[in-house]
Amino acid sequence: MKINKKVNGEKTTIALEGRLDTGTSPELEVVLNAITPTSKDLTLDFAKLEYVSSAGLRVLLTAQKNMNAHNGKMAIVNANDVVREVFDVTGFASFIKIN
């Protein structure tokens, strides 16, 4: 998985490419742990992400919690059907914003 981070003022965009699964989640976790405690506006671009497994979901859950802690905004954009499906099925769509 490739992680591309772009910072534009207060807004941070992280674009993921590949799979967010057991093997790759720890990488993302490291990246997000650095950003989420302080970032005011975080966008996760999933345009090139194939799927998310439960390991990935856990990382995203932690990130959202961190963002919520200081009222930071977090959103997922360009998610494909498979990712959406997983979010819907697991109920994550109710607390992680997917545009």
Partner: peptide, 20 residues
């Protein structure tokens, strides 16, 4: 198709990791 494969991949990822 890709969509079907992605779904199955998640399944394998979950279960294999579980075993591992």
């Amino acid at each position: 198709n890709q969509k079907f494969i992605a779904r199955i991949s998640i399944v394998i990822d979950e279960l294999f990791a579980n075993v591992a």
